[in-house]
Design a protein around this nucleic acid. Structure first.
Lengths: 341, 341
DNA sequence: CCCGGAATGGTAACCGGTGTCATCTTGCCT
DNA sequence: AGGCAAGATGACACCGGTTACCATTCCGGG
């Protein structure tokens, strides 16, 4: 079958008796082309199974069709969701997705990224949190002629190239839900300093408490790193407060799982003794016991939109860049006080 | 700074007063080159920040430097681990990693894959389970001139292009551990039919039981799909057996989490009433309560090795292609009978 | 002193596409 | 019928590298 060599535009031209240029016109759907010619050439293309060489195209056009995804593993499901979302958009196009996990603590981070972009001559890149919050990275990319789209939590000044979730409002609603369930002593576990998402979620907590007419108590608030262990540590701190909380909002699911462990270790039952709400709706959230009430944000849709902004900035201008999140109500948050015990 | 245009090999040649060819020789580290010339050219390259255009190279060499990762999301952490492993290998090379999540139930799967490979002119592809078990997919890739490396569970006939974990032995050891803890009625939740990993793990279970001098009881064995819900269903089945198991090995962590839910719903305590061992050591395993005893296999190392086999088949010939797994002992498996209750 | 061969660098063609511009039809208007 | 505009197609250079092949320089040996 395979002659060993892939057919080229020259083969197509020769076999259909036209010039390279005409074949090129057919491929690119040029409007000024005789219908009969087009059909003839298309028949040959189909017959040969000809596929244009993307490297040659890239060379001639002086632009290529690779988009890069740079991230420092915020969490596996998010990264994969993003990849799927991007693919939803580019699957039918000639673009391809090149990934690059990096280490944000590496001293050569900026150079690594620069090298990656230059070496592959990327068309555009997408940045995921927490990398997406660093302007220096975005600057490097732009300097290199890449369009950049960042995914993350909302930012005050509206940025054309940001696709964000409205964490603040989502958290505010989650806290509202706890208040509605009758909780008054609501604790909070914040994310690490310097992360916009952490700030946004904290603001949401403050907003939600205010709206419910409650005053946040610093004694039952702690800060974590978004990792499991830090959640457990924060949990121990909160639960050993003089007046422990009856409900806690954790800035992500992983820390919520840690908090759950801390509660179990103290002999507390969740949700009977403590209601918990997390954030992200990772796989873990549904798999722990009790299933975790949490906030789900539309990663895949956001990534898909972000990809569209990357490859078609014009038509994507109308696309929203702020996405709402949903509170997924599961068993970890229940009314307080619980029925007599 | 940037003149808007990237420097080309011609610029380097002109500025260093040599021909393109000489510059090319410098780039490719040709041995027959005057040392002084090399240094002069390298100075200019560094000065200009010149990076060879990969598309032009690909065109001239008639081979490119993209490797593809095709998968149907077996689980997010595994996919991400694989990506990181591959990057460990290719980071210092000129290769890049292009990803492509696919839907294995799509009727156009084979065409999608073919299209992906042809459109990007991939150099090689890596297949993840369960795709890696389908010979038709591997055949398509090879037909298109791609080298293929498959990751998965061991296969009897030794395949040069397979990087595998020894699931069978790992499960056998896990079951041995349960027996060592004093368990006699050990249940099993199998993976879906048609998956090699499922068969291997089942074999491992059979082996382990035999080695411990125990006879598997079909009444406390069930089959799942590797998903959470199926684990819960299997758990209900096993636990409602006339003589329920005192320990269960689940073929993956997600089903183990389901089993845990089933146990809780029946009012059983884990691990007091039921010991559980899972497989994969996903994030969930460490985050559920109790932390899950499970089998961890070296995804990242395996992927890194697989990538090496892909880009340097010769030097990687000596690399192992079968990797051992570790039993991670956590709190979900305890001695039986438990201290008096 | 001349010649052959190794060491080095240059030239031109090519990889597989695209852009520019010229050429050749064709149809329509006057 | 002649002129002309518009439509269709082709010739050719070019994108930024690589390779095949040739030209030059510098040796040492006869």
């Amino acid at each position: 079958m395979a002659k060993g060599q892939k057919p080229t535009i020259n083969d197509v031209a020769r076999l259909s008796g036209v010039s390279k240029k005409t074949v090129s016109r057919v491929i690119n759907k040029s409007p000024l082309l005789n219908e009969a010619t087009r059909e003839k050439v298309e028949a040959v293309i189909a017959d040969l199974g000809y596929v244009p060489n993307p490297q040659a195209r890239a060379l001639a056009l002086r632009r290529n069709f690779l988009i890069g995804l740079i991230h420092d593993n915020p969490n596996a499901q998010m990264v994969l969701g993003v990849q799927e979302g991007i693919l939803d958009t580019i699957r039918k196009t000639e673009f391809a997705l090149v990934v690059r996990p990096v280490d944000r603590h590496s001293p050569t981070l900026l150079d690594d990224i620069r090298h990656f972009i230059e070496q592959q001559r990327l068309y555009g890149v997408m940045l995921l949190p927490p990398l997406s919050e660093r302007d220096d990275i975005a600057d490097v990319c732009q300097e290199l002629g890449c369009t950049v789209v960042r995914m993350g939590s909302a930012k005050l000044d509206d940025d054309e190239h940001l696709v964000a979730s409205n964490d603040r409002q989502a958290v505010s609603e989650a806290v509202g839900w706890l208040a509605e369930l009758g909780h008054r002593r609501i604790g909070f576990i914040a994310g690490p300093e310097g992360f916009r998402s952490a700030r946004e979620r904290q603001q949401g907590f403050t907003d939600g408490m205010a709206q419910a007419g409650l005053t946040p108590d610093p004694a039952i608030m702690a800060r974590g790193t978004y990792r499991f262990e830090s959640g457990r540590a924060a949990g121990e701190q909160l639960l050993s407060a003089k007046e422990p909380p009856t409900a806690v909002f954790s800035s992500n699911d992983e820390m919520a799982a840690g908090l759950l462990h801390a509660a179990k270790e103290r002999g507390l039952d969740v949700p009977e003794d403590l209601s918990i709400i997390g954030f992200d709706d990772t796989a873990t959230a549904a798999h722990i016991w009790p299933p975790l009430t949490t906030v789900r944000w539309p990663i895949r849709t956001m990534a898909s939109t972000a990809a569209l902004k990357l490859i078609e900035p014009t038509s994507a201008g109308s696309q929203p860049s702020m996405f709402p999140s949903d509170l997924i109500r599961r068993a970890s948050a229940v009314p307080y006080p619980t029925e007599e015990r």
